[in-house]
Design a protein around this nucleic acid. Structure first.
Length: 941
RNA sequence: GCCCAGAUGGUGGAAUUGGUAGACACGAGGGACUUAAAAUCCCUUGGCCAGUGAUGGCCGUACGGGUUCGAUUCCCGUUCCGGGCACCA
């Protein structure tokens, strides 16, 4: 009597045994090659996991288990990104300490994760909010404070080295405040007075990637620009290395491209422009610098433009224009960032001054206009209306001349921005090009690319400017005006920021009564009473003791979300080390993450910060690899599939989907959990909400059919599917299989519980096959050639598919193989055993159970992945379609080792071929062994 | 506007990178077993046409061209959907 597939019993049993036997504990082992698999750790939200969350975890768990079966020592850890805004906002609303809600959520996550059967080593769990973890976040911050970026070495160096250099150069001030201010310009973590994204509603500043289209990503509140003193990380120093590193890692092209855009390297030229305060030029002005990527267009410059925020504005404004300029600056100030971003109306004002084009000698008016940004390049541009659409619009508006410089370019309606074509009018006549050391610039006849290179050479040779690389990447604002984050290990000694000694870390987050800013507008940490630094006793003391001599105030800001998530992968290597972030031995063994799985929405946030952070730690020698994540897989989002019922307006009658067009109806979201295959469970619907208890239905074919739509998975759309429910009804193995079977991991796709039966059936078939083999008393039975062929085909396919991260196709291959073996009435344990190992990464519970039944050693996790042998796959003959003129006409068998000549001979002599050859002559023949036979014929002349 | 990635049955998706398109699964239809239901098993299932029939023919991978004996795959153009960047000079 064959045992039923009782997944509940099996899964509970193995969860217990895995814990008891510590099956997933990982220790460093020099004798085995390492493999590091990592998921982006989750923020434990109050809503718990829905069915979309585990997708990436399952995908990486499969890979981790596969690598382990191949003999690798696999690190596959999990932890929590525990600091975050939702817990804090909940605390503000309810007074509940964020730690309490966060820990409760973590427990709930853990419970849900445990049901799915991951091979995580929970001994290595990290939580960003625990002091022994953020100890090292604070430590890294202090290291950044103590470092600067050496442009020549292109790496971080101790700040002491810079001080030494400054002393030698005689630039080291005596005054302490002045020293502090000077070093602030170099430190990798520094206090900067910068324009920040200030969100009044959230009461905090935000990083660039936390703001989209002028509103906060979290909450969608308006964000304004405000000048504030904030902690910053000099991410921009690493721009070039962040860019170059992308070529060394195995990430998708689209995410690399996103990062390249975000870094925004542009190679251009800075050119010095002298200016005068009147057209005749008698009153001398000074000079300013412009940045351009189109140096070739120097001959087409008809005006210059300064950003309104530029310090030059004041200098170039003539007394006559003063009133107009002030008026304009007032207007610009009144506009929010958002208005400026959306509304591109042409505005600007003439400054009264003229810039002198060093190439042509022409004097061109200098304008002030908001379309030029202060934060990019030099905040000043040369305007070439013929070849830049923004300059073009400006020139048209103010009636300024437009000089075309590219042959055949029509600039009567629009500018010609393309970088293709042959240059002309450069210069219009030889006397329009200024001579330097007997040389004058002429670009006529060159392509634009050649012209750019030639102009660069000319500008450099005659010291008119320099070649300059600009990056769009900004320094990261590193402080937040919040409570629930890492406190800064910094105090203010007579106003000078000073680090709390390294030995005194971690500085623990103080307790507060209220999580809101103080009445005086200080951040929430201002509410903490015990929050002052006693320099002598080296400890945190009551604020009341602040005495201006030895007790000083501590920083009230906290660190942003990305602080804790930037180096967590290093901590997993050595999570309990209280002497270092990671020991040199552990870092040397685990190196970096081999496979990183997570969402692509982190492309310009976490994935940039983390790379920056790691590069810094690499410069320090802490991290052993320059790039933290060698291969990155971005799992797609699981969308919800919502169901609708259709209520006839003003009634409590619902009409089935197919008949709804005959009535005036309102579609209403209905809980997907009471709908199966789009058919509504009427009783469950009535019980769902009191308002539907008395509902009437108009059915079709005796059923109520629901409509559906693909939407985001969310509570309000009643389309959330909870993994617990799936595990309860089908088991974790089925859930794991189905999540992967749904389609490629990288692809976003809707969740549709309807298809899950297929995977469930497959496991039941596998179970039945295994039982029939296990119950076969004569277990002498050796596998047949057919059995072996099926098995080895499967080994080959599954191995290749897992390597390619193509899990859906390997599951299909399993389905085929199990069907084949069942049909073959396979009785061999020699076939079952490798099958069990092959399925183990996908469905670990059933695999363990069968492994035990087969009498396997220990856990199936420690088995060896089977190798396929080509000899079982050899075909003696191959069925191929014989084509005439590219169309398949009939099938025939060919010996597998037939040469092309033999194949042609066999095909042309086949009886079926005769009707295609009759009256024809063979023009050409193509035969590729095991692939194709094609005979090209044409009517005989 | 610029850059990237896509488009295949009723549905999710395959196709050894140029070689018989639609594997596998869901759904649907038909059948077997059963008092019945569940479960299980078998058959059909891209479209159109012809035939009693096994079967045969034509069309078909968003659209229009091209290269090729042969194109879902390569090239050119168009449309649509998704993602990123964006007064970045």
């Amino acid at each position: 009597m064959a045992k039923e597939y009782n997944f509940r019993e099996i899964e509970q049993k193995w969860h217990r045994l895995w814990t008891e036997r510590q099956t997933y504990k990982v220790v460093e082992d020099e004798d085995r090659k390492k493999f590091y698999v990592l998921n982006m750790f989750p923020y434990p939200s109050g809503a718990g996991l829905h069915v979309g969350h585990p997708l990436g975890y399952i995908a990486s768990d499969i890979f981790a288990r596969y690598k382990r079966l191949q003999g690798f020592n696999v690190l596959n850890p999990m932890g929590y990104d525990a600091y975050g805004l939702p817990a804090e906002q909940y605390a503000i609303k309810t007074g509940q300490h964020p730690e309490k809600t966060t820990f409760a959520n973590i427990d709930r996550y853990r419970e849900q994760l445990d049901k799915i059967g991951f091979s995580f080593d929970w001994d290595r769990e990290v939580r960003t909010c625990s002091p022994d973890y953020y100890h090292w976040t604070q430590w890294a911050f202090q290291k950044m404070w103590g470092s600067y970026f050496d442009e020549e070495l292109q790496k971080a160096q101790p700040i002491e080295k810079l001080i030494e250099k400054l002393k030698q150069e005689g630039r080291w001030p005596a005054d302490e405040q002045a020293q502090s201010d000077l070093l602030m310009n170099y430190r990798l973590a520094f206090l900067g007075e910068t324009m920040v994204n200030w969100c009044p509603k959230l009461g905090t500043v935000l990083a660039n990637d936390e703001v989209v289209e002028g509103v906060s990503v979290r909450g969608g509140y308006p964000v304004e620009q405000k000048k504030m003193r904030q902690w910053c990380l000099r991410v921009s120093a690493y721009s070039q290395r962040l860019l170059d590193g992308l070529d060394t890692i195995d990430w998708s092209e689209s995410i690399k491209e996103t990062q390249r855009n975000w870094i925004g390297r542009s190679e251009g030229t800075e050119i010095e422009i002298p200016y005068v305060l009147s057209p005749s030029g008698e009153s001398e002005g000074g000079r300013f610098t412009i940045f351009t990527t189109r140096a070739d267009t120097m001959f087409g410059v008809t005006f210059f433009v300064l950003a309104p925020e530029s310090e030059l504005v004041d200098k170039v404004t003539t007394p006559e224009q003063r009133a107009a300029v002030d008026e304009y600056l007032k207007y610009v100030k009144s506009r929010t960032e958002r208005e400026r971003m959306i509304d591109h109306t042409v505005t600007g004002v003439f400054s009264g001054a003229y810039g002198i084009n060093p190439i042509t000698g022409d004097k061109c008016p200098i304008y002030i206009a908001e379309y030029v940004l202060a934060g990019y390049g030099t905040g000043a541009i040369m305007a070439v209306p013929a070849h830049d659409s923004r300059d073009y619009a400006f020139a048209k508006h103010f009636g300024l001349p437009i000089i075309p410089l590219v042959e055949g370019a029509d600039v009567s309606e629009d500018s010609y921005d393309a970088k293709e074509g042959i240059v002309m009018n450069s210069p219009v006549s030889p006397d329009k090009s200024v001579e330097y050391d007997g040389e004058s610039l002429c670009l006529n006849g060159l392509t634009i690319k050649e012209a750019i290179a030639e102009t660069k050479r000319f500008v450099e040779a005659h010291k008119l400017g320099r070649i300059k690389v600009n990056y769009r990447l900004r320094d990261a604002i590193f402080s937040r005006q919040r409570y629930w984050g890492e406190p800064f290990p910094v105090y203010y000694k007579h106003g000078i920021p000073t680090m709390i000694p390294e030995e005194c870390l971690p500085i623990e987050l103080p307790q507060v009564e209220k999580f809101l800013p103080t009445e005086t507008g200080e951040p929430p940490l201002g509410n903490a009473q015990v929050w002052a630094w006693d320099e002598v006793n080296r400890k945190i003391v009551d604020k009341a003791l602040i005495d201006e001599k030895t007790v000083f105030p501590i920083e009230l800001y906290t660190m942003p979300g990305f602080a804790g998530s930037s180096a967590y992968y290093l901590r997993y290597m050595d999570p309990h080390n209280d002497k270092a972030l990671v020991s040199p031995e552990a870092a040397a063994y685990w190196q970096n993450v081999d496979l990183y799985v997570g969402g692509s929405e982190h492309a310009t946030g976490h994935l940039i910060y983390s790379r920056f952070w790691n590069k810094f730690l690499f410069d320090l020698g802490v991290s052993k690899k320059e790039e933290p994540f060698q291969k990155l897989v971005n799992q797609g989002m699981i969308q919800g599939r919502s169901n609708f019922v259709y209520r006839i307006k003003e009634t409590n009658t619902f009409v089935s989907f197919g008949l709804k067009d005959q009535y005036d109806v309102t579609p209403i979201h209905v809980d997907v959990n009471i709908v199966k295959n789009d058919v509504l469970d009427l009783e469950a619907f009535k019980a769902w909400s009191p308002e539907y208890a008395t509902a009437d239905f108009i059915l079709e074919d005796g059923k109520y059919v629901c409509g559906w739509a693909i939407e985001k998975m969310s509570k309000s759309m009643y389309n959330v599917v909870n993994p617990d429910m799936i595990v309860e009804n089908y088991g974790a193995d089925t859930l794991r299989l189905y999540e992967m079977f749904l389609g490629p991991v990288e692809q976003s796709k809707p969740w549709d519980t309807n298809g899950i039966d297929g995977c469930f059936r497959f496991l039941k078939k596998l179970w039945a096959l295994a039982q029939s083999i296990l119950n076969n008393q004569s277990n002498q039975s050796t596998p047949t050639a057919e059995n072996l062929k099926t098995l080895h085909k499967l080994i080959k396919k599954v191995t290749a598919d897992i390597e390619a991260f193509s899990y859906n196709t390997s599951i299909s291959a399993f389905m085929v193989a199990v069907n084949e073996l069942s049909q073959q009435k396979c009785t061999s344990r020699d076939i079952l055993e490798p099958m069990v190992i092959l399925i183990a990464p996908f469905a670990p519970h059933i695999a363990e159970e069968l492994w035990e039944a087969l009498g396997g050693e220990g856990s199936v996790c420690d088995a060896r992945w089977p190798q396929y042998e080509e000899k079982y796959l050899v075909e003696t003959s191959v069925k191929l379609g014989v084509q005439f003129n590219g169309k398949v006409r009939f099938d025939m068998l060919f010996p597998a080792d037939a040469t092309p000549e033999q194949m042609i001979a066999l095909a042309t002599s086949a009886p079926e071929a005769q009707k295609y050859l009759d009256g024809m002559q063979v023009v050409k023949t193509i035969a590729i062994p095991k692939r194709i036979v094609n005979i090209v014929v044409k009517p005989q002349a």
